[in-house]
């Protein structure tokens, strides 16, 4: 279990050194998107239109925060369950997406896409929403404001704590971690 500090956008070299189980502190820009925003992004790609942000090296965080109190940058902002984004993730990975942050299992297609195009799936701690909010230094809605908490936001983060769940070698922390501690 190694520990790294990384800055976005991620490059292939960054992704290649990560192994399932490593702890990473991410800094830089991270974009938020949930199911509804993912659907729109993929529709834009299919129509050959421009996306609201550059996918090359980008990291997307699956989150639907609580409303901020007056004066707050963001409300509580922990990860949501990732499988809802599985149908869309491989298309984005193919176009340059390098990192996804969420919680819970991914399907085979996503894991394969991570292998093929060198991308990584990070797990954030579900329910650690007040702690994660502290790592978010600014938040700005850049697309689909009508989606409310599901709008695409550009976040500036500093030392956002995540764990590598699926690396670009096909390893899966959920499976391996469990196998290691399982008793018959």
């Amino acid at each position: 279990m190694a520990e790294y500090k990384l800055r976005t956008p991620l490059r292939n070299e960054d992704v290649e050194k990560l192994k399932a189980g490593d702890i990473v502190y991410l800094s830089g820009v991270v974009y938020t998107a949930r199911d509804a925003a993912h659907k729109r992004l993929v529709d834009l790609i299919n129509e050959g239109k421009e996306l609201p942000f550059d996918l090359e090296g980008a990291v997307i965080y699956y989150v639907g925060p609580t409303p901020p109190k007056p004066g707050e940058v963001i409300g509580s902002a922990g990860p949501t369950t990732s499988y809802r984004m599985d149908p869309y993730a491989p298309i984005l990975i193919e176009r340059g997406l390098k990192g996804m942050i969420g919680k819970g299992k991914r399907n085979k297609e996503v894991i394969e896409a991570c292998k093929k195009h060198k991308a990584v799936y990070f797990g954030a701690v579900g329910g650690a929403a007040a702690l994660i909010a502290k790592a978010i230094k600014s938040a700005e809605v850049i697309a689909y404001p009508e989606l409310g908490p599901e709008a695409i936001r550009k976040l500036e983060v500093e030392d956002f704590p995540v764990v590598v769940v699926n690396d670009c070698y096909g390893n899966d922390l959920y499976e391996e971690g469990r196998k290691k501690w399982e008793q018959q």
Partner: peptide
């Protein structure tokens, strides 16, 4: 006994402390 899980538990406990001090929701899914 697992190092990774211990690190996760530490985050969960730290989160509870921050939430309590700031009266901020423990989890965004309320």
């Amino acid at each position: 006994k697992s190092e990774v899980s211990k690190a996760v538990l530490k985050q969960i406990l730290d989160n509870a402390k921050i939430a309590e001090e700031e009266w901020k929701p423990l989890c965004q899914d309320t």
